[in-house]
Design a protein around this nucleic acid. Structure first.
Lengths: 203, 203
DNA sequence: AAAAGGTTTAACCATTTGGTTAAATATGAT
DNA sequence: ATCATATTTAACCAAATGGTTAAACCTTTT
């Protein structure tokens, strides 16, 4: 069977890899061309310049990041199930896109307008609002102990994302464990995070 | 009173600022020179090249990062007090060096050998070992509920660091709050993190 | 088969950037 | 004052880098 792959796709795949690996500043058009197995001039034929290419890569990334989580947030489930589903979906995504968080945080902090633009074009609503409300209600209903919802969410997201974003810090400085062992830890986190959150809010 | 500030110090201050702000790839020797108010050639007079200058900046950063935490870890206190002291000291440091985590994670993931070298020269022992042992003992002594120590530590560090390292993600994408409000959240975290951890491990 | 249009390439170009050089200027010792 | 040494600067340089151009090469249409 024929697996058609256009030059444009080859370029985007190569660009995604190089941009994520090296960041905007470190990425070289020549390296992207080499990775795509084409001439450098062809990059500029398909994408006018580095910025256009970067924007296209961003759009692809952001497009996958968002919908996943939003569906969960909007679903109707009891608070504990919902939190568990959130952690579950978030970690699945992170395990499949391990280098993404550091890349996004990085570019976002240097190049904010570009990235925020990409998010807005992809229609990311501040999905936090609804979650905050639900946590408030769960507190009033005596389902969970009183806790600042913003901080609870912050903590959950932190526990999910940081092991990926700060992976180099954990792996190379703090824990000094080999790659496979770290991957093993990452896989266990789904369960560990949920248990931590559960015990910290259950009455 | 005379505040003596040598050219070398001026350079290091400027370099630290530019490197942290822009990263290795984004930092320009010219910009560092401008920030220091000197000629570009003078940079190379004091520091042979970009790499030497970067290493010196790193040494300064790592030198302050470590000792702070190690003293706490090595202190003898009951487990809950120790965890609280750890969070306390960590957040004080982070509040005073907000841009550092992203910078370190970033350079560490691209340029590992350079940074790990800087850590090793500054004698960072994998301080985690001792903490893991103590958590194990606390579990055996029925002081806290059974929990994987590595994950507990990972979670604590995550909750402390991520709001700084992923600040742009929280602030600009997820929560969309103004600067002062985010700073306010950060100041509250000390208390919030400890309470979260406390409730999640207390029997 | 020849014209036409899109696709790909090699060779260039202008600018930026890290780094050097040689001369000028302070600074300190004799 | 004068000599020597350390500090600072302006002018350069070579390599790297994003981008352009004009020609070559397909593929499809007529």
């Amino acid at each position: 069977m024929e697996v058609e792959i256009t030059t444009e796709e080859k370029i985007l795949i190569a660009a995604r890899k190089v941009f994520i690996e090296k960041g905007w500043d470190g990425a070289r058009m020549q390296e992207i061309a080499d990775n795509a197995g084409i001439n450098k001039a062809l990059l500029h034929y398909y994408f006018r310049n580095k910025e256009q290419l970067f924007k296209r890569v961003l759009a692809g990334i952001v497009g996958k990041l968002i919908p996943n989580l939003n569906t969960i947030i909007q679903s109707e489930q009891p608070i504990f199930e919902k939190i568990q589903a959130f952690i579950d979906a978030y970690l699945d995504f992170l395990l499949a896109n391990q280098e993404l968080p550091l890349f996004v945080a990085n570019e976002l902090s240097r190049n904010a307008n570009l990235i925020v633009g990409a998010f807005e074009e992809n229609g990311l609503k501040p999905m936090v609002g609804q979650m905050v409300m639900e946590i408030f209600q769960a507190i009033e209903n005596k389902q969970i102990r009183p806790i600042n919802p913003a901080h609870l969410l912050m903590s959950i997201v932190s526990m999910c994302v940081f092991p990926f974003m700060g992976r180099s810090i954990f792996q190379k400085v703090l824990m000094q464990v080999p790659e496979e062992m770290y991957q093993e830890l990452l896989k266990q986190r789904k369960k560990e995070i949920y248990e931590m959150v559960y015990h910290s809010i259950v009455l």
